[in-house]
Amino acid sequence: MFDAIEAYPWVGAQLSRAPWETAMLRIYERLGRQVEALGVRGSAQFTAASTLLSYVIGVSGQNATAIQFARRELAPSTNRVGFLEAAAARWRELDAREYPFTRSVAAHLPGHDDRGELLAGIDLILAGIAGSR
């Protein structure tokens, strides 16, 4: 899903608008089966599958929005690294008392891997699911 939404940013918005449509139901079904295979039972299945779905759609949609913004609002020559380096520079200039965390992680922004971050987030959610069984 991440790759599809990154390639076609409008997909995420479409999926979010019509959660009862076939595509969203198929995605939810696939996630739900995987949650069930993990041994999650009862109402926790709904919560776990919904959390995973919301996370993947949310992160994918956020990345797609950033891509669309960059294409629409920035110079055509702006690439991902340049865009993220400029954002990191702005983060480092934030007020140190109001934004100590954001300033401390600014150096990681330009080189981060969107897909890697998504997968790390899924791992965190799965660890929480496993810990709650």
Rank of each mutant, 00 (worst) to 15 (best):
P100M: 09
W20A: 15
Y99G: 01
L126S: 00
Q34T: 09
L124Q: 14
Y28C: 04
S104G: 06
A70D: 02
A37Y: 04
Q68V: 15
R33P: 00
L74S: 12
S77T: 15
L124H: 11
A75Q: 12
G116H: 04
A4G: 06
G82V: 04
L124W: 11
F69N: 09
A66S: 10
A86T: 11
A23I: 07
W10V: 14
R71D: 15
G42W: 10
S54Q: 12
P76Q: 10
G32E: 07
A48M: 07
H112L: 14
A49D: 03
G42N: 10
D3Q: 11
P9M: 05
P9D: 03
A49I: 02
T102L: 11
G128A: 09
F69R: 13
S43M: 04
E85G: 11
A96M: 04
G39L: 04
D95V: 07
G82N: 09
A18Q: 13
A130T: 15
W20Y: 14
E21S: 13
E36M: 04
L31H: 03
V35P: 00
R115G: 01
A130C: 07
E21C: 10
G32T: 09
L119Y: 11
R92Y: 12
V11F: 06
R133M: 06
W10Q: 12
A4C: 07
Q34G: 11
L126N: 03
G121W: 03
E98W: 07
L94E: 10
G12V: 02
N79G: 13
N63V: 12
F69Y: 15
L52P: 00
G12C: 01
F83C: 06
R33H: 08
E73S: 10
Q68D: 10
P19Q: 09
L84A: 10
G111N: 14
A88H: 08
V11L: 07
G116I: 02
L38R: 08
G12A: 07
A18F: 15
R71A: 12
A64G: 08
A89Q: 13
L118A: 05
H108P: 04
Q34W: 02
R41S: 08
W91F: 15
V11M: 11
V11D: 02
I125N: 00
Q62T: 07
A7N: 08
E93Q: 11
S60M: 03
V59G: 00
L126W: 02
R17F: 10
S16H: 11
D114T: 09
I27F: 15
D113Y: 02
Q62Y: 13
D113R: 07
A127C: 03
G42Q: 08
D113H: 07
R30V: 05
T51K: 14
E29W: 08
Q14P: 05
A130K: 12
L38P: 01
V40A: 01
V11R: 06
D123M: 03
T47M: 08
R41P: 02
L31F: 12
E6F: 07
I27R: 08
R103W: 00
G128S: 11
H108I: 08
Y99K: 09
E6I: 10
A70W: 01
L74D: 09
S43H: 07
R72Q: 14
R133T: 09
D3L: 02
G121Y: 03
W91R: 14
E21T: 10
A37W: 04
G12W: 01
I129D: 02
S132P: 00
R26A: 08
F2P: 00
L126P: 00
V11Q: 05
G32V: 01
Q62S: 09
G121M: 02
